[in-house]
């Protein structure tokens, strides 16, 4: 689904990411750990193609196609969707209109909004006066309508109260088509049938209680320092901290 080959990225001429290699296969959900300011958000912004993030080396492939130089909207139309941490406010554009923009097909905006407890926000300006948790729910609602094949979520749990964190997890699983095994479907078939992929940034790991991830990576000082089982890596980080965890694995 997504393949990064020796990807290096700079922001305002300052190198942030160095030779990142990553392969996310169809149906896989990867989680990205790492301390603040280490380049996790830069990575997903570069994959989305935002202009501030200059690819200084390497390639980005999506569904086998080299998208390193593609525009943001081309990437979105190919099937990449993103939830950034601090999306801008769009005055005068309602959440309903935004969800309609996202929906490739005719989507039932009210039905989707009901799933994520956003019905009362539909006529409000996008992110206008929203709390942290409301922004997350609004972003997830947009992604539910967009139906991307690769979903990138930047800290989906941050700013979300305990009451809503399960809702955020449930909605992310809906977008990833997880947790919806049909009657009579074997686990194997369920796993091979699902095609949606995810890349989720978290530094607390709380969201892993709700979204089952297949692989975890630790980003440290602009490189992917190590990869492994999400739960094992999380407990290593929790016990020993990032620095030691990365050293140990190296």
């Amino acid at each position: 689904m997504l393949k990064l080959e020796n990807l290096s990225v700079a922001v305002n001429d300052r190198p942030i990411l160095h030779d990142v290699n990553l392969h996310i296969k169809p149906g896989e959900v990867h989680v990205l750990f790492g301390p603040n300011g280490t380049g996790k958000s830069t990575l997903i912004s570069a994959i989305m193609g935002f202009a501030r993030y200059t690819v200084t080396g390497g390639k980005i492939y999506f569904k086998g196609q080299d998208i390193t130089k593609s525009s943001v909207d081309e990437r979105a139309r190919l099937g990449i969707g993103v939830m950034i941490q601090r999306p801008p406010t769009l005055r005068g554009l309602t959440v309903r209109e935004m969800v309609q923009i996202c929906g490739k097909k005719q989507v039932d905006v009210d039905e989707l909004a009901d799933k994520i407890n956003m019905v009362e926000f539909l006529e409000r300006g996008v992110n206008e006066g929203f709390s942290g948790g409301e922004i997350k729910r609004s972003e997830l609602l947009q992604l539910m309508a967009q139906q991307p094949d690769l979903v990138m979520l930047d800290e989906p749990e941050s700013g979300v109260d305990i009451e809503n964190i399960a809702l955020v997890g449930k909605s992310a699983n809906y977008i990833l088509e997880r947790g919806m095994r049909k009657n009579g479907q074997t686990v194997k078939k369920y796993r091979t049938d699902r095609k949606k992929s995810g890349l989720i940034i978290t530094h607390t790991g709380h969201i892993l209680q709700y979204i089952p991830a297949d692989t975890a990576h630790v980003m440290y000082q602009g490189t992917l320092a190590c990869s492994g089982n999400p739960q094992e890596m999380l407990s290593c980080i929790q016990k020993k901290g990032y620095e030691e965890c990365v050293n140990c694995a190296l």
């Binding site: 909207d73 950034i84 999306p87 769009l90 005068g92 554009l93 996202c102 967009q146």
Partner: peptide
Amino acid sequence: YLMARGLNEEDAIATIVRG
């Protein structure tokens, strides 16, 4: 932000101006 939801640049600008 709008381009990441699939609008091209022209449509994104028009949408912002309309709003």
